[in-house]
Design a protein around this nucleic acid. Structure first.
Lengths: 190, 190
DNA sequence: ATTAGGGTGTGACCGAAATCACTTTTATTT
DNA sequence: AAATAAAAGTGATTTCGGTCACACCCTAAT
């Protein structure tokens, strides 16, 4: 198993080497290529995914035409369509790779199994609360900031992924048109 | 202790009567009047609050002038400035009563204490994930819907609190001006 | 019954961003 | 290297929602 996942979990719970080998067996490793879908709309959402390398986008399509991006996820993030996974319903969101990406999947039953067996509830609770806090920041950003300010906030918050995604994709995340973003970009440079 | 909290927790973990009496002692009950602040900007955030009755708004003020509402919270919801509580920093948000409100406060140390002592991690994990899912829905609503559609979605989602708040306050939540909301309102009636 | 204040409705005007249309630049593929 | 596709820049036009200004409630207090 990728060392990242081990290090990440160990922040909260020091498992012995043997416990870790045991735990590792419940995860399913898979590699996806750029543009491949990890979760497709209307498909069942079997897993929650730990991204060990690469970059993905979680998005929603209205009327299967216009795309909107809920979040990017990269190294050491857990991601899935939480609503669909947690309620075991069909995916309303899609999860697609912006780069070649390696993931460790954890299915519904195993998720609840390991919560108790390895006392990982507090680990996931921490992840979830931080995710919740990040979502609230995003809501405030959408409510309070103008496109230009949102763009600048994004640059500050995620300087690394800004380099890794096309501007047209970033526009889908910021909630502005491609053209408007392009014009802002010029202005904030000088 | 208010029966609501007990019923809510019991969904996840059946505590004995004596355990419950023990647990109850860590909560601090308090009653607030309409317009009172439970959390004030820049103050320390001691507690996470379980709302047992009433209605509150969680909001952000930019430059201490313009208000934006992150969420409403009412009976059976847990609410606080999570970022400030969890990181033990000063409040960036305010929590203010829209009605007379009764809360049960739980402080930082006790929170982590009872997570383990009463095995409540899974209970709070569930709450947190559902909160996270709700936040994501809100983000999508802001990204994909026009003001009129957001208003209609709100009516559908929270028909009860729509009756309990002024339209001008709802506008702060929907991210539109008071005037625009007023005009939409007329249009969607006919 | 008069006043004051919170909440709401509505017209006029303005501006930021969407949309449309097209060009230019940069990557990928063969 | 040529061809094709993807991404980005830019002008012209339109539109939705914000802002300003003021009128009209309705309830509670004097």
């Amino acid at each position: 198993m990728n060392p990242f996942l081990k290090n990440d979990i160990n922040i909260f719970k020091n498992l012995s080497e043997s416990e870790f080998i045991e735990l590792k067996s419940v995860f399913s490793y898979r590699k996806y290529l750029k543009k491949e879908f990890i979760i497709k709309e209307d498909a069942a959402v079997e897993n929650i995914y730990f991204i060990s390398s690469g970059l993905v986008k979680l998005s929603y399509f209205d009327n299967d035409t216009n795309e909107f991006i809920l979040s990017f996820a990269f190294e050491n993030w857990w991601e899935t369509d939480f609503s669909a996974f947690y309620n075991q319903t069909k995916a309303a969101l899609t999860l697609q790779c912006l780069e070649d990406t390696e993931v460790y999947g954890l299915n519904f039953d195993d998720y609840f199994l390991i919560l108790d067996k390895y006392r990982l509830s507090n680990y996931f609770l921490d992840k979830s609360i931080r995710g919740h806090i990040a979502s609230q920041k995003r809501i405030l950003s959408l409510l309070t900031l103008k496109p230009k300010e949102r763009y600048e906030q994004f640059l500050q918050l995620y300087p690394s992924i800004n380099q890794r995604i096309p501007k047209s994709v970033l526009a889908l995340y910021l909630g502005v048109s491609r053209e408007t973003l392009s014009r802002l970009y010029r202005k904030s440079k000088k």
